[in-house]
């Protein structure tokens, strides 16, 4: 008890906009890990197939895309085996999309617990991002497996030095999903209808990235729109690093990083502002 006896605090109506409460959040890091563990354990216990589900979704999506976009529509895959091309995009996109959709409902999903106990609310979206990392890891292993399969078959692809940017790409995807998700979550507490927008909005957004087509195949007229999406350069970098195809440029990844930082900081500010009185509106 004595260690904190000089702990002074103040509760007031509004706090400074730029008070991100990061120190407070750091104090609760153990909670973050325990929440991740909870998500993982409860997922395991409730399903028979457990982590198999993590594989099924990207596999089926890849098969679908290969058939519809690759074979029927005949969209170029930059000379890569089609499933490999799509799976690279899907693996990366899924992580971002999961982070975004789960974060965007964080207030709704945790209304009960938020109404009863205080802890830095930022912990919840952060735990979502970390929990999803586990899922991403599993899907990434699947992607590596498919890569090995095609390497044995003699398909033409190779690693490039950009593979060293992989950790950065993952962090940026997480931060981007987190930032955008937090902004949406804050807005949905007031304007409920936004929640409906998200589920199909995220679907539409996927077509504005290079998941199903290489950037080189994008129509010239809309290319800027696709490049405007910060996810585009992340997927491109991911593909360039592991498969050696796609367009990589420092300026586009720099743009993504900048957009991510802006969204993340903005997201935290808005999230913290809403969090203070959110309990009164549910």
């Amino acid at each position: 008890m004595s260690e904190n006896s000089e702990h002074l605090w103040e509760i007031k109506p509004k706090s400074g906009l730029l008070d991100l409460k990061l120190k407070d959040t750091w104090e609760y890091r153990d909670l973050l890990l325990l929440l991740v563990r909870r998500d993982f354990v409860s997922f395991y216990k409730q399903t028979i197939l457990g982590p198999i589900w993590f594989f099924i979704q990207p596999l089926l999506t890849t098969i679908m895309f290969t058939f519809v976009f690759g074979n029927l529509a005949g969209i170029s895959t930059d000379g890569l085996p089609k499933p490999l091309f799509y799976m690279a995009g899907i693996t990366a996109w899924n992580y971002f999309a999961d982070c975004l959709t789960k974060t965007s409902t964080v207030f709704k999903d945790n209304a009960g617990i938020f109404g009863k106990v205080y802890f830095p609310r930022l912990i919840m979206p952060l735990s979502i991002v970390v929990s999803n990392l586990v899922r991403f890891g599993v899907q990434f292993l699947l992607f590596l497996g498919v890569m090995i399969f095609y390497a044995v078959k003699g398909a033409e692809f190779h690693f490039t030095w950009a593979i060293s940017l992989f950790p950065l790409v993952v962090i940026l995807m997480a931060a981007l999903g987190l930032g955008a998700g937090m902004i949406i979550s804050a807005m949905t507490t007031k304007y409920r209808d936004l929640a409906f927008l998200i589920t199909f909005g995220i679907q539409l957004l996927m077509y504005a990235t290079t998941v199903i087509f290489p950037l080189s195949a994008a129509p010239e007229k809309y290319r800027w729109l696709i490049e405007l999406n910060p996810m585009t350069s992340l997927i491109e970098t991911f593909r360039y690093g592991f498969l050696g195809r796609g367009s990589f440029s420092w300026s586009s990844i720099g743009y993504s990083a900048l957009a991510t930082i802006v969204l993340l900081v903005g997201g935290i500010i808005i999230f913290n502002k809403v969090e203070k009185n959110f309990v009164d509106t549910v």
């Binding site: 904190n4 006896s5 000089e6 702990h7 002074l8 605090w9 103040e10 509760i11 007031k12 109506p13 509004k14 009960g112 617990i113 938020f114 109404g115 009863k116 106990v117 205080y118 203070k276 009185n277 309990v279 009164d280």
Partner: peptide, 25 residues
């Protein structure tokens, strides 16, 4: 308990707060 913020006024204090608004949250 800092679950919701006041509209006006303030509270100051010393020491860590543990609040139990519900058991088993």
């Amino acid at each position: 308990s800092r679950v919701t913020a006041p509209t006006r006024g303030r509270i100051t204090g010393k020491g860590r707060i543990a609040s139990l608004l519900e058991v088993g949250t």
